[in-house]
Nucleic acid binder design. Sequence first.
DNA 1: AACGCAACTGAGACTTAGTGTCAAAAGAAT
DNA 2: ATTCTTTTGACACTAAGTCTCAGTTGCGTT
Lengths: 203, 203
Amino acid sequence: MGLRERKKERTRAELQRHALRLFRDHGYAETTVDDIAAAAEVSRSTFFRYFPTKEDVVLFDDVDPVMERVMHGLPDGTPLLAAVRTVLRESFGSLDDEARALEEVRMELARSVPQIAAILRERNAFAVEQVAGMVGPATGRDPADPEVLLFSGIVLGARHAARARVEAGRAASYVDELDAMLGRLGAGIPLADEPVRARAQSP
Amino acid sequence: MGLRERKKERTRAELQRHALRLFRDHGYAETTVDDIAAAAEVSRSTFFRYFPTKEDVVLFDDVDPVMERVMHGLPDGTPLLAAVRTVLRESFGSLDDEARALEEVRMELARSVPQIAAILRERNAFAVEQVAGMVGPATGRDPADPEVLLFSGIVLGARHAARARVEAGRAASYVDELDAMLGRLGAGIPLADEPVRARAQSP
DNA sequence: AACGCAACTGAGACTTAGTGTCAAAAGAAT
DNA sequence: ATTCTTTTGACACTAAGTCTCAGTTGCGTT
């Protein structure tokens, strides 16, 4: 790995590090791209060469390839739900220390800066199609099959639920919470047959 | 309703109508707020007085109050899943002609302009917390209860799945598709126990 | 009918995100 | 050392979004 490569890597990391720090200390909207660039001692242009938008500097790194790998390592015949649970747990769990630390800061940011929570929720809510693209082939079905899409949607839903718990400060670890949610799915859809009491609404 | 109110209503509708038309004809990014304002014959300032951001001009109108009303009209003891299904079907189904037509344009736009599809997916993916805020009280539980959140997430997931089908051009009516998805949920989580075949991946 | 109040609107200045160009600087290769 | 390529910085430009202020217009009062 040449000097050029290492320098690029360092610049990218610096930009991200300073950005997250500034967001945490002064807020997301209050921090301009100029501020970030100045803190990392590069020009504004350089910032945009590394991150297409200001939001991107906060986003998760791509975990897709890892998930693919874990999926391939599973024994044939594993039930789909269990397979997905394993894939998510393993791939998130296998992040190295640096990535995990970054994740920590991001989560803390998501809790303290509402705007960042919104960004993470919106941008990182990976599309149903993405999950379906994995589930379809694994079960030998069309990714556009309604049941494949519904299953994928449910997995996403569990993800949303887990994030909601973490953002509300009710759960410490996102990975554990997501795992727990997928575990609950093993017993079917919770509360599906629970009777509603229309009158029980509070003001 | 005074003249002022009616005028406001008309201005808002005009802005939205022209915006959607311009987006459809020239694309989302290519249409500036100035263009929209000019077409609706108001000033740029006025546009932002009606819609906080350019994106907002595309978004769904708030259906919350309608949903609340339908929910209250349900007989006590209705199973939760059935209740939610009814609420969604009824509240979307009860839109007046104008709203339904607007909806039609929006869906067409979502299909032809990828950027708008993204906006709808992101912004209108109403938060888990919102659904949980309805489900919680109806079942006499804390909206932060993990099972309440998971159930809410699943409903959202079905919504994502339905939208994916519509966007892919595989389903004509969003309302019907969502209803069908929720119907499928009645039989539990589809494909949960389906065996995966890791080798069955295509390149 | 005229008055004053409050809400709505338009004009325009300003900040910042994001894009594009071009020339200078710095690493890599010969 | 020289040439080639990649990276960078300076700068100009467009458009979104915010803010202020002055002018207008509907609305209730006297």
